[in-house]
Design a protein around this nucleic acid. Structure first.
Length: 505
DNA sequence: AAAAAAT
């Protein structure tokens, strides 16, 4: 065991193949089915370690292939080692994966199911917000792998629908998030029900003191696998912030979305009500949008996510329920309708774009009162985000008020939350026409060259909104989280995985 | 200050 970190570069030639790990043919077949041949760096690092039976503390972002990194070796180990003979159940739970959100649980479960499809291993997912009956039947039928959110799992345990006395492997996914959400007591209760002798894998985006404490109490002699933050924030994602009047934010967001030619956009709102309102606002503008947040029923949440993934809707307006973990692939653009209160969440949010080598845009609108949030974010990511300017929109409400021109907040405008829809919008007009006729914004007095001034929206075919932005190449800096990660718990063995670019000098 | 999660 070496104290020297092993560094794996993401852009080095992929020499390792899944076939090299000694995985069972059934697993390899599942991978081939999905066209996977080469592991991602974290998979290449984690799979052999997990196969050795070691505990793992993984600092890994979503989108790094983390899920396969732990599920493949878990499936392999379960296949290779028979279940404990004393078990009365034919299919006792032998591996347990805990996640902070229901959607993440579903997603992990889908992956596990796919990887184990050619094996006799059974898996299921349990989470709240759904009827317990179906979950109960499957649990009682016996499953080797359970993916769960903590609360509902405890519910099933209390109802004696499942027993965890045979669990050999425990995964805590997004552990930092679980702590944030106050799951620590639940985690403690669940872990108390597990056999003392077991393998533990813990994944976290950050290595806060609390996480270290958790790792120290739950992990035995862990190998730390560091995944430097993908350079997404530095290279591949173009980040721009737009300062606008608070009241104009939603119209600016709409404008930005239209500028994207309605390609799939994920929009983040800090509040559930804000997400719903913005979604409704966009829908009323003829944009196929929907909202996802914790006040929606689980059915609605799943339907929204599904529709977005299928491309049936163009815009998903989400609270931070979707900030982490959700694998929505190939997103070209993320927009922050609100800057997150927690700077760390900014990184998670924009991590939804620029994934898997693709480029992406992360756009944010903010107003005067959010100045401090922006400072915090820039401090965290150690770079200055490009300030974008939008012709046709003013940066602050006071400026527009001072000129006595109509501005977003003054113009009487039906609130989106109101049910009525008749008065403000004459029927029969196309949404496009509605927009230009109905809204007015204070336009910049200078430089009216960016489009027709008859309305707030420059015509898309005439104007590329991106020309408005003076592009400065983003500064390349070592990501802040990677810094924290390097000071991780005293590991016997340490592996650093650098993703998404060359190591910094 | 807000969101998530068992009900």
């Amino acid at each position: 065991m070496s104290e020297t970190p092993i560094t794996i570069e993401a852009d080095s030639e992929p020499t390792v193949k899944f076939a090299d790990f000694g995985l069972a043919p059934e697993i390899l077949r599942a991978l081939t089915d999905q066209g996977y041949i080469h592991p991602t760096p974290i998979q290449a690092a984690a799979i052999p370690i997990v196969l050795q039976g070691r505990d793992v503390m993984g600092a890994a972002q979503t989108g790094t292939g983390k899920t396969a990194g732990f599920s493949l070796p878990i499936i392999q180990l379960l296949l290779a080692h028979a279940s404990p003979s004393m078990s009365p159940a034919r299919h006792p739970v032998r591996a347990l994966v805990l996640t902070p959100t229901r959607e993440l649980a579903v997603q992990v479960a889908e992956n596990v199911k796919a990887y184990a499809q050619h094996t006799p291993l059974r898996s299921t997912v349990v989470f709240g917000g759904m009827d317990m009956k179906g979950q109960t039947i499957i649990l009682k039928g016996g499953v080797e792998i359970v993916i769960a959110t903590p609360g509902r799992l405890l519910d099933h345990i209390e109802q004696k629908n499942v027993s965890l006395g045979q669990v050999q492997m425990l995964v805590m996914d997004e552990a930092d998030r679980m702590l944030d959400m106050g799951f620590l007591p639940d985690l403690q209760r669940i872990i108390n029900l597990l056999p003392k002798k077991r393998q533990n894998l813990m994944f976290s985006a950050t290595f806060s003191p609390e996480i270290k404490k958790l790792a120290n109490s739950f992990l035995t002699d862990p190998v730390t696998i560091e995944v430097a933050r993908s350079n997404a924030t530095a290279d591949k994602v173009t980040q721009i912030v737009y300062k606008v009047a608070e009241e104009a934010k939603r119209d600016v967001v709409e404008f930005l979305i239209r500028g994207r030619d309605l390609k799939q956009v994920l929009v983040f709102s800090n509040t559930k009500i804000g997400a719903s309102r913005l979604s409704r606002h966009l829908e009323q503008g003829g944009i196929k949008a929907t909202a996802i947040h914790g006040d929606k029923t689980q059915q609605e949440r799943m339907a929204a996510l599904d529709a977005f993934k299928k491309g049936e809707i163009d815009v998903l307006v989400a609270t931070d329920v979707a900030a982490r973990g959700l694998d929505i692939s190939d997103l070209p653009c993320v927009i922050n309708f609100d800057l997150p209160y927690n700077a760390e969440d900014y990184v998670h949010r924009i991590g939804r774009t620029g994934r898997a080598g693709a480029s992406g845009d992360a756009l944010s609108v903010y107003s005067d009162k959010d100045e401090r949030l922006l400072v915090d974010i820039e401090k965290l990511i150690k770079q200055t985000i490009t300030r974008g300017e939008l012709a046709g929109f003013v940066a602050s409400s006071s400026a527009s008020a001072g000129r006595g021109e109509p501005s977003g907040e003054r113009r009487p405008r039906r609130d989106d939350s109101a049910a009525g829809s008749g008065a403000a919008r004459p029927p029969g007009r196309t949404p496009e026409r509605e927009r230009s006729g109905e809204r007015s914004f204070t336009s910049s007095s200078s430089g009216g060259s960016s489009g027709p001034r008859s309305g707030p929206y420059p015509r898309r075919d005439k104007v590329d909104p991106w020309f408005l932005t003076p592009y400065e190449p983003a500064k390349k800096t070592t990501p802040a989280v990677a810094d924290q990660v390097s000071t991780s718990t005293k590991p016997k063995q340490k592996i650093a995985v650098l993703l998404g670019g060359s190591p910094k000098q």
